[in-house]
């Protein structure tokens, strides 16, 4: 993998461990999908290899669609490891509850626009949470963690993607979930137009009715 100096574990996620390291003089993130003891090795290997191959491809496509993602430097399939650019910024997760109302709205509008660009180019992120968005010092929002993504323009997949975004807002930013999601949708419709946006919103309604997602708002009133 070339010269690699003292990687430091910065985040032990569920799916992968992230290390901050120096690589050819650059500050990089090394994303390593470690074997999971709980899974059978054959299943585990298949999942890790697939995601390691898949993620950089989608990140590259996202960039072409105008969505900032870290630059990929190296993919090591055998070690299920990706070396990518270190983005110096803050997770949107840490910011969203702290900023002013108008800043929050601007952030969410922008996020909606970026999701719109992904979807317009047939990319589904697959794990839209505010932990997977990084705001850098120039005000650019980077999307990371495309391991669960896919290439499709199906309405169903777009609906699930946005449903997950709403879910993340409701579980982690519950105080502002509604205003945030509305702004996301506003930004989204700027890119995809009212017509497509309406269809996706209808789809989200259908998805939520399919599971156990609908609260009986009438009864609660």
């Amino acid at each position: 993998m070339g010269e690699m100096k003292t990687p430091v574990l910065i985040k032990k996620g569920a799916e992968a461990s992230l290390y901050l390291a120096k690589w050819h003089g650059r500050k990089v993130i090394m994303k390593k999908r470690l074997p999971k003891k709980y899974r059978l090795s054959r299943l585990d290997e298949q999942i890790r290899t697939y995601r390691t191959a898949h993620e950089p491809r989608l990140m590259h496509e996202a960039k072409k669609a105008g969505v900032p993602t870290p630059i990929i430097f190296l993919v090591d399939m055998k070690k299920a490891t990706i070396i990518m650019e270190f983005v110096d910024g803050k997770q949107v997760k840490q910011l969203l509850d702290e900023v002013s109302e108008s800043q929050r709205r601007q952030l969410c509008l922008k996020i909606g626009e970026l999701i719109g660009r992904l979807h317009k180019h047939g990319i589904i992120h697959g794990d839209l949470t505010t932990s997977n968005m990084i705001l850098d010092s120039d005000g650019k929002i980077f999307f990371v963690d495309f391991g669960l993504g896919e290439k499709t323009s199906e309405l169903e997949a777009r609906g699930v993607d946005l449903h997950l975004m709403r879910r993340a807002l409701e579980s982690t930013h519950f105080r502002f979930a509604e205003e945030c999601f509305n702004a996301v949708i506003e930004g989204y419709s700027k890119v995809l137009g009212d017509n497509v946006t309406k269809k996706v919103l209808d789809k989200i309604g259908e998805i939520e009715r399919r599971g156990r997602y609908i609260a009986e708002r009438k009864e609660e009133a």
């Binding site: 794990d127 949470t129 699930v160 879910r167």
Partner: peptide, 13 residues
């Protein structure tokens, strides 16, 4: 024998 089957995780769903 493990037969490979669809493994569908979408975000946390």
């Amino acid at each position: 024998k493990l037969v490979l089957l669809p493994y569908t995780v979408k975000g946390m769903d």
